[in-house]
Amino acid sequence: MEQQKFRKKVMRIYYALSVFFGLLLLLSAGLVYISVNPSVLIPSPKTNSNAYVDIDPNRIENGIHLATGFKDDDGLQVVISQCTPCHSAKLVTQNRATKEGWISIIRWMQDTQKLWDLGANEDIVVSYLAKNYAPENTGRRAILTDIEWYELEN
């Protein structure tokens, strides 16, 4: 009888300890996870988290390569590989130049900014840029465009 009682007590302590250590284990696992991924604590906007998971880096929409903003044309992948390791594609797409102009920009980067020799890729890059980012004649002063009209109360 005494022995059974003792046995029961031991079992109870055993269960209690198991639950305690189990919870401890869960808690520490949780803490480790949070310390590795602190971002889980930051409330993210209500979106389907899957939405970002498999963005296609080759996705083209309306003739624009979404990942870089470059126009889709022959040589796009070469341009991405040669023109975006050091600086943003935005530095390219906001500029306009003739073939000679683009070549001189490449020479300047090679002379002063540690750009490598593009080899056979240079022709591809220059043709792509000269075709897709050619200068337009804007005259001595362009007219105002893209005006967002709004009522001004006064």
């Binding site: 963005i55 979404l66 990942a67 870089t68 903003g69 943003s88 935005k90």
Partner: peptide, 13 residues
């Protein structure tokens, strides 16, 4: 521009 997406590894949120 969505320049960042080119740097996103697969399965990365």
């Amino acid at each position: 521009d969505i320049v960042f997406s080119s740097n996103l590894p697969d399965n990365y949120i």
